[in-house]
Simulated scan of single mutants.
Amino acid sequence: MTLRVGTRASALATAQAGTVAKALGGVLVPIVSEGDTSTASLASLGGTGVFATALREALLAGEVDAVVHSYKDLPTAPADGLAIASVPRRADPRDALCARGGLDLASLPEGARVGTGSPRRRAQLAARRPDLELVDIRGNIDSRLARIETDDPERALDAVVLAAAGLERLGRLDAVTEFLPIDAWPTAPAQGALAVETRRGETQLAAKLDHRPTRLAVEAERGVLARLEAGCAAPIGAHAFLEDGLLFLTARVYRPDGGEHVTSSHAMPPDAEAPADLAARVADELLALGAARLAPLHD
């Protein structure tokens, strides 16, 4: 039997799921979600789960055997009857600036129009460059990049901020004018990582793609979100990695206007309990530092 791998129908989702399907010897089955067809803001559509719902329904209905998610788009609560079978090796987790004229963030002119649909990126941009005009945008990568190429004054932007991983998967790294350093600019928990989900009890269908260092890191990052009971409306950045026999995790919560933030960092040996324990330490410290005062942590 040929493995049927469900994916969102967007170009980016199809590209990244295609690598999974090829590695598993399967075929792609495109599935359209509300998040793909609506132009409303992500927060107003119901948050991170909007992209996952249609895929999960198809999986539970037996229409596909596995589905591929951008892991950052998944709610932190597990889905009944389903399991994450594998987390493949992570791509570049950084954000990337794509700007007119090859400019970096520091050299954008005062009042430049910069597009992003992410509350975290808005807070980070406002903190770094409070003079910028921040424009809320939706759409796929190509449509966002088109707004820095158009001469239409109503649609034109001077720059957009996008995930480096998505640009790489679509072969659009040529548009990047600056990679934003992960230590100063932590990104969404699990950014750059994929999650391959199957029905519970059938994880062996995709288990061979699991990359333990990536799984440990993204589980720690997502654990901070779960501990804070936060979702897509909360401006939170997190980054975890394995080095010198330890799992390191840093997370930062921003005030939405970028005027203030709190940060916590911890490390521990990477045993099976490390992601949850590390996330709890970091999240509890963030709360002690006033994270709940700064940001809307509950959707």
Rank of each mutant, 00 (worst) to 15 (best):
A238Q: 04
H239R: 15
V218F: 03
L242I: 06
H211Q: 02
G237P: 10
K208W: 09
A234H: 12
R222D: 12
P181H: 09
A233V: 12
A238F: 11
V218L: 03
P186F: 11
R199I: 15
L194K: 00
L225F: 12
F179Y: 09
A220I: 10
G201L: 10
A195G: 01
P189R: 08
R200I: 10
C232A: 06
V218A: 05
H239V: 14
T203A: 08
A234Q: 07
F179P: 01
Q191C: 01
P235V: 15
A220T: 03
E197V: 13
P235Y: 08
R222V: 04
G192Y: 00
H239M: 09
E221Q: 05
L242G: 03
T214H: 03
V224I: 14
D210L: 13
R215A: 08
A217Y: 00
P189W: 04
D183Y: 14
A207P: 13
Q191F: 01
P213S: 01
R199V: 15
A206S: 07
A220E: 08
R215M: 10
A230F: 06
D210C: 06
A188I: 03
A184W: 15
A217F: 06
H211C: 01
A206L: 11
A238I: 07
E221G: 00
L225G: 04
Q191H: 02
A226R: 07
Q191L: 01
W185T: 05
L209Q: 05
I182C: 05
R200P: 10
P213W: 02
K208H: 11
T214P: 00
H211E: 01
P189Q: 00
G223A: 08
P235F: 12
R222F: 07
G201H: 12
P189I: 02
I182E: 04
A195W: 01
L194T: 01
V224Q: 05
A188Y: 05
W185I: 02
A226E: 14
P213A: 04
P186M: 09
Q204T: 06
W185R: 13
F179S: 09
L228Y: 13
R199T: 06
Q204E: 15
R200W: 12
A230S: 11
A188K: 02
A234Y: 04
T187N: 06
G223Y: 15
